[in-house]
């Protein structure tokens, strides 16, 4: 407890405040599920902290999925990223530019910020810790293929690798290639396989093994 939320209790004993109806319903559920051995409070804590900071690469994933199914949209996205993102109803701050880079069978794009940690947070959320680390920032430029291998991306020698250095004025997001085996998928299904790392260019979208969803 910090100084600011310290309560004056005076002589009163410390009675808990009665929970509201909805709080009581939530407490009832959690206590019953614990008694039945179906979950623990720690399970719930763990989920909350995992999701609370998942920090929406969701917007970027939806933009990518839409660009995969709508080729006109893809052209607009590559031409003017912020406008295309706003077109889908998301905010994109006017103060920073965003270039969208299309990875293909011939060219693989990957993004770094060598000076600091410029990152398109408006579409990808907060940057992962490794993105801000000194080794990634220097090695992505010096030995990008090796770094990609460490991320599990093995590129054939005939695929060229372009490394893009973000700045505070211009940030980058990768539009990965749509994987085979995703024909007929809905945009929601497609968005689910576009991870943050795919849009930084250190991973490629993977079709799950049980692909007949």
């Amino acid at each position: 407890m910090t100084k600011h939320d310290h309560h004056e209790h005076g002589d009163h004993s410390h009675h808990p405040e009665a929970p509201s109806d909805i709080e009581a319903r939530t407490l009832a559920l959690e206590s019953l599920l614990i008694e039945k051995g179906l979950l623990t409070s720690e399970d719930v804590d763990r989920i909350i902290s995992a999701y609370e900071h998942d920090i929406g690469p969701m917007i970027g994933a939806r933009v990518v999925a839409h660009a995969w199914v709508d080729l006109d949209y893809r052209a607009r996205l590559l031409n003017d990223g912020p406008a295309a993102i706003r077109e889908l109803g998301y905010d994109y701050p006017a103060s920073t530019g965003l270039a969208v880079l299309e990875s293909t069978k011939e060219v693989h794009h990957m993004v770094v910020c060598t000076l600091c940690s410029c990152y398109p947070w408006a579409v990808l959320g907060l940057p992962p810790t490794w993105y801000k680390s000194a080794p990634y920032r220097s090695r992505a430029v010096v030995e990008p293929r090796k770094v990609l291998e460490e991320f599990g991306v093995a590129l054939p020698a005939d695929v060229s690798v372009n490394v893009w250095d973000s700045s505070s004025d211009l940030r980058y997001m990768v539009l990965p290639e749509r994987p085979e085996g995703t024909e007929g998928w809905t945009e929601e299904q497609l968005a689910a396989i576009v991870s943050r790392d795919c849009m930084i260019g250190v991973a490629r979208p993977q079709v799950p093994a049980e692909a007949n969803r």
């Binding site: 979950l39 399970d43 989920i47 909350i48 907060l126």
Partner: peptide
């Protein structure tokens, strides 16, 4: 982009469903 829970019970309700 981050999930928002306006009160602790919202987080508990979210967590239980996911668990």
């Amino acid at each position: 982009g981050e999930l928002v829970f306006k009160a602790p019970w919202e987080g508990r309700a979210f967590g239980m469903v996911v668990v």
